[in-house]
Every structure is written in C-alpha cells, then in structure tokens.
Design a protein around this nucleic acid. Structure first.
Lengths: 202, 202
DNA sequence: TCGATTCTGGAATGATCGTCAAAGAATAGG
DNA sequence: CCTATTCTTTGACGATCATTCCAGAATCGA
C-alpha cells in the first residue's frame, strides 16, 4: 500500500520555494525558477503541492510560522504594549535586513500589483496584511483596558499608525536602507507611544 | 517629407498607459492590456514609444510630472518644513484614495519584486524612491539651517521616518483603508515633528 | 498625379508561461 | 517473483508573453 518513496524532503524543498517567492514575489517566480531552486522536476512539484498557487500558500504559511511570525510573537510575549510594539518593529527590521535573506517582508512585497489572472493571490495577501493589523489592534485594545495606555487613547489610530510604519519598513529594507538607519527610524516611531502613556505623577 | 499622420493623440494614449501601469504595475500589465487600454495596435505603440519599458518610463515621468509630483510641490511651496511635510502626507493620502484612480503610489507599488529579466525596471523604480527621499531630506536640512527645527534635530532621521511612513501609506491605501483613517494616521505621524520643534518660550 | 514617407491593423515570430500526460523506476504486500 | 502503488523524468500541451514583419492606407513635397 506504499509505492516508490519520495526522493526529496518536502519541508526542505518548501523552504527553498519560500526563499524563491520571498526574493521575487509570486509572479516574479516562474515554475522553471522553482524547478531550479527546489531541485526537483515540475511534475514532482505538482504531485507534492498541487499547483503553483497552492505551493505559494504553503510557502507563506511556512514564512508566517517562522520568520513572519515575529509580530504575533512580540505582541504575545512582551509584558507591556509599548515593549511589544517596539520589539515587533525591531524584530521586523532585523529580519528584513538579515544577511542571506531577501530584504523586506514576503507578505508585503510579494504581490501588491499583478496580472488579472492572479488577482486572487493579491487579494489573499491583502487579507494576510489585514490579519496582522488586527493582531496589533487587539493588543492595543487590551492595553487600554488594562490601563497601560490612557483611557482617551485611540487604539485603532495607534494600530493604523504602526501598521503603516511597519509596511513602510519593507519598502525601505527592499531599497537597501542599512539596518542601523532603520533602527533609528524605529526610535522616531516609538515617540508616538509617549503621547498615549499615562502620566505617572501629576 | 511627412507621411501619414498619426491617428491618435500621443499624450492621451500615454495617459491611458500610465493608468494601466498604475493599476497593475509593470509586469502585471501585458502588451495586450496596453493595446486594449490605449486603443491602438501594438505596432503603433512600438513606433511611438519604442518598447514596453520605454513606454513605462514615459508613463512614470508623466505620473511624476502631475499626480506623483505632490511631494516635490508640497516641499517647495509650503513656507515651513512642518507644513510642507504635513501637506505632502495629506496630498499623498488624497491622491492614493482618489475615486477613479488606482490606489497607492505608482512608484512604490509598481515593481517591488519582479522576474529576473525586469530587474532593471525594479532598480530604476528604487532609484526614483531614493530621489524622493533626497528631496525630503534636503527640505529638512534647510529647516535646521533656518532654525525651523532645533539645531540638535537629526534631518536624516526625520527624512527616513517620513519616507518610511509615506511608503507605508501606499500599501495601506492599496489594502483599502478609508481616507478618513489614513488622515488620522497622518495626525499621529505629525507628532514626531513636535519633538524637534524649537521651544518658543522657556 | 506621382513617388516618398509614415502610420495603420493583422498576423506571425520565438520564447516562456503554468500544467499535465506518459512511461520507466522503486518500493510494499502478497 | 508478481502486482499494485507511488514517485521520477521526459517531453509536450495550449496560452500568453514582448516584439516585429508586412501589406495597405493616408499624407507630404514635387
């Protein structure tokens, strides 16, 4: 009940596909690019993953489960919202400027624009971005409930701001901004948080 | 010494090509898309513009001369750096969420990632973005020289911040954020400027 | 009116796109 | 060993990509 065994490691070739997609986006990565990057024939790719689009979905899921999960991790693990936001940004900047990795975020850069026939992919990526925004927003709402930030602070406005900034970081990284400058930029962005911190004394 | 006259208005078909590229990016817009959008045969496109890439360059130049010039205009026309930055962001948000226009910035969204054979286009777009950053930086340096912002303020850090934020706006607009929310996000971003304003009294 | 010149639409170029059919190779249970 | 099953490689599929060739149509100076 078991035929010829698979000659490649599924996780390994998936990771290679992720890197290819990460570097060049969905449309920028052709099947022959994938064949070269993954080291297996296209028919094997179809047998193991179904289609280019299904492979891309798995690749993004893998990215999200590891590298791309920095936002969710930071927001869940840091005790205060302020530290969580800062760590999210710093982790993002670190990842986006990591040597050996494509620069910038896979979900932000992969397919903002594409041909009509791939609109579904672009739309799905957009929903991924909106999901990340929702995670940030929830953390900030929690912060207001717990008194970490002032009761008159606007969590949605803060979430919008940090989402916007985070996505801008991908373009900057992609354009070759050095890590040190990006880190300094994050210091600027964190000033926004000061305005919503409760005044300790007074 | 003059043959059959051209049956189309060059500026008009160029504008239509710009809209097509703006909506779908460089790779996302095929020649047949352009033929349909411009209303002329592909041979006419090649006769009038040379190639798809040359047409794209002209389209971006046209975008930059009109819609995309908002940054340069705001920075040149507003008397203070603070007003200039704010107007640049507000004009951007207005443009990016304009009904009838593709959402987001053509230069930011057109080709962050693309196939190997179009790397030159992506690289050129990146240089366009860096040029915009340079304009912002120059305005802020001028502001420090003239005392509009504090002498210990860091113009490069400010330019990096507002460039990052501005590029993030394109993704947000592309993802369907309503104009009102984007405008509120800009209010947040302008708080950064407070930190570098000279203290009037004291 | 007559070349000379320039633009037009249509068709065709070779290349590449994503996908899959077919046949051989390698394993399992019998 | 034999058969069933599953994976591999090869090569081809039709579609679409950017580009160009070609024949006809429209305008110029002469």
């Amino acid at each position: 009940m078991a035929g010829r065994p698979r000659a490649f490691d599924r996780e390994q070739v998936l990771r290679r596909a992720r890197d290819a997609f990460w570097a060049r986006g969905y449309e920028g990565t052709s099947m022959s690019d994938l064949v070269e990057a993954m080291g297996i024939a296209s028919a094997s790719i179809y047998a193991a993953f179904g289609s280019k689009e299904a492979l891309f979905h798995e690749a993004v899921a893998d990215y999200d489960a590891h590298e791309g999960g920095f936002a969710a991790r930071a927001l869940a693990e840091e005790p205060t919202a302020r530290d969580a936001i800062r760590r999210m940004l710093v982790d993002a900047a670190t990842l986006f400027t990591q040597r050996g990795n494509p620069r910038g975020c896979m979900v932000v850069l992969s397919a903002p624009k594409c041909a009509k026939q791939n609109e579904a992919v672009a739309e799905w990526l957009s929903s991924q971005r909106r999901a990340r925004h929702a995670v940030i927003l929830r953390r900030l709402q929690k912060a207001r409930e717990s008194g970490e930030i002032r009761p008159d602070a606007d969590p949605e406005m803060l979430a919008d701001f940090y989402t916007t900034f985070l996505q801008g970081l991908s373009i900057q990284a992609r354009d070759g901004f050095p890590r040190k400058r990006i880190m300094k930029t994050i210091d600027s962005a964190m000033l926004i948080f000061e305005a919503v911190m409760p005044h300790l004394a007074q």
